[in-house]
Amino acid sequence: MIAPAILVQFTLVLYPLVIALISSFQSWYMPHPEQRHFVGFQNYIRLITSPEVANAAWVTLKFMVFSVIGTTLLGLVIGLLLASEFRGVSVFRSLLIIPMMVTPAVSALLWIQMWHGSYGVINAILGPLGLAVEDWKSFPTTALWTIIIPDVWQWTPFVMLVVLGGMQSLPVDVFEAARVDGAYGWKMFRRITFPLLLPFLSTAVLFKLVYTLRVYALAWLITRGGPGTSTEIMSIKITITAFRELQIGKASALSFLVLIVLIIVGTLLYRLFNKIRELGYS
């Protein structure tokens, strides 16, 4: 009963990956497939020493770090607020998960309209406060934020739901005992709530990282990697290399570099988070 599923999965993923691995050692310019030839590690060496790839890695890292920090902080606060019980709280809970469902392409367009320099609603609101920016998307300093903020808007509900679920699964008597001992407000949060929530938060962060690596439509539609290459995250870099520069061999090599880095970083992070989870339970 297992074999068919494994077979399907392996032919669809492993086999293409093997072909791509072979082509990653080739020079392969799409319009001239007949000139395809082996070049050894040349693709890899060029990529590792390329400032463009370093830039893409750096932009991706910045995007991930800010996006994860933003979603985690906001999600934690909102999740804690939602964890209180009162009539009608479920309305808030249902409404606040909606951004998470929004198709990334739709999310991109919705924010493009709002960021618009002359007619966007954001400038219309910030203008009277003297905070309007001529065109948010076309300044290197603000461009990255025009994709980070939509991403945070979309994924805060995820962290929020995880925190809410965590709070609901924690035993009530722990909080009551702490209250009897005189823990309130900030002290309660630091000493009791936060340590108990830590395993949930670390799971949320881990999955947020996984989902952040999937981001493509949002960034591509809003900034197209620009201005210059200031918002060129790795997924955009790979597609540009493959389908605009048409360097299939080079793009395959870049995909494998990404895979290798992900496997190494992923394993390390997974171990780290498991430690945090154990800490939280002990």
Partner: peptide
């Protein structure tokens, strides 16, 4: 299977295209 789900599309798209 779990790890296959976690693979980001950007790492597979070129392979899929060739395939």
């Amino acid at each position: 299977f779990l790890s296959q789900f976690m693979l980001p599309p950007m790492a597979l798209i070129v392979a899929f295209y060739i395939f």
